[in-house]
């Protein structure tokens, strides 16, 4: 038996010691994340913003240019046409993902949450494309849709729809939609998983209670489950918005090239940034103009996310479950 009094005294002493050492442990635990994030994310971001305020000279040195590069990008007809076209294409891409990918992800998640037979097999199969390299996905779909070696025409033929076949990736009217749908095919697994996890976290008691109150499955989904997963849908929307500017580049670059063929129909901010920054054939790379485009992308994402946070996220009601 130890003396209760000394024990309490010891406790107080340790507590005091802990307080005296200040939040040192907090610093220690935060340090790795802060350090890595600063070096690999914040520093490059600041550096890129800085680059966009300079202009390159022939001998490789840079001079202060202020906001000149931004003015060129937004108002010089050559740059403005490219910039706004790319921006518009990004919006179209975002729109298609919002109306196709996310509802589809919701539907799949809802179906999976009913625990159908072979549910986990479907879940895995639908998620697998997400793990594939974009280059492989692009190449496979290019082959599937190819007029020469592709199977799409034959497949359409078996259901008597061969006349529907078009070289979709090569037509200005359909190229961007086709690329978006390929991307939807690849990434639908991500919203599905996020929403599925949210659906699973809804306590059974709530569903049971709703059932006792006389709601059918359809009403339970709309009136109980959906309101509870709204915050997740919000996250999915914001991830779609950001991904639309970053992820879209890989797929478009691998399928349609750095010029967003045909006739810039699939040219997005990413491809514009890439060819401006690194150069394209005879176009010599211009890091300052490239950094300007990158910064504009940053601002566009920033504004989009801020609007979302201010107008939507704060109004979303969260329920304790």
């Amino acid at each position: 038996m130890s003396d209760p009094v000394t024990d309490t005294a010891k406790d107080v002493r340790t507590r005091r010691k802990r307080r005296r050492s200040g939040g040192l442990h907090i610093v220690v635990f935060l340090a790795p994340a802060v350090l890595i994030y600063s070096v690999f994310s914040i520093y490059p971001l600041v550096e890129s913003l800085r680059l966009s305020l300079f202009d390159g000279l022939e001998d490789g040195t840079a001079v202060w240019a202020g906001l000149e590069n931004y003015a060129t990008l937004l108002f010089d007809p050559n740059w403005a046409t490219q910039f706004w076209r790319a921006f518009w294409n990004n919006l179209v891409l975002f729109f298609i993902h919002m109306v196709v990918q996310n509802p589809l992800g919701l539907l799949l998640a809802a179906l999976l949450s009913l625990a159908p037979r072979f549910g986990s097999a479907y879940r895995t199969l639908i998620f697998v494309p997400t793990l594939l390299s974009v280059v492989i996905v692009g190449f496979i779909w290019e082959l599937i849709l190819s007029p020469l070696w592709g199977v799409s025409e034959t497949l359409l033929g078996t259901i008597g729809l061969a006349w529907l076949y078009q070289p979709w990736l090569g037509l200005e009217s359909s190229a961007l939609t086709t690329v978006s749908l390929i991307s939807v095919w690849q990434y639908v697994g991500i919203p599905m998983m996020l929403i599925y996890a949210a659906l699973l976290s809804i306590p059974d008691e709530l569903i049971d209670a709703a059932r006792v109150d006389g709601l059918n499955g359809w009403s339970i989904f709309w009136k109980v489950k959906l309101p509870l997963i709204l915050p997740t849908l919000g996250i999915v929307a914001i991830l779609t918005y950001i991904g639309n500017f970053t992820v879209s580049f890989d797929l478009i670059y691998s399928i349609q090239g750095a010029l967003g063929a045909p006739n810039f129909a699939t040219d997005v901010m990413g491809t514009l940034l890439f060819r401006t920054f690194f150069g394209q054939q005879l176009q010599v790379g211009d890091i300052h103009m490239g950094a300007t485009i990158a910064s504009m992308m940053f601002f566009i994402i920033l504004v989009g996310v801020s609007i979302y946070l201010a107008l939507v996220q704060r109004r979303l009601q969260r329920y304790e479950m």
Binding site: E142, L145, S146, P147, L148, W149, Y165, Q166, P167, W168, L169, G170, L171, P262
Partner: peptide, 12 residues
């Protein structure tokens, strides 16, 4: 040119 040449790439 090949049918549907709009989607025919270099390696094709």
């Amino acid at each position: 040119m090949g049918r549907a040449y709009q989607a025919q790439g270099y390696t094709d």
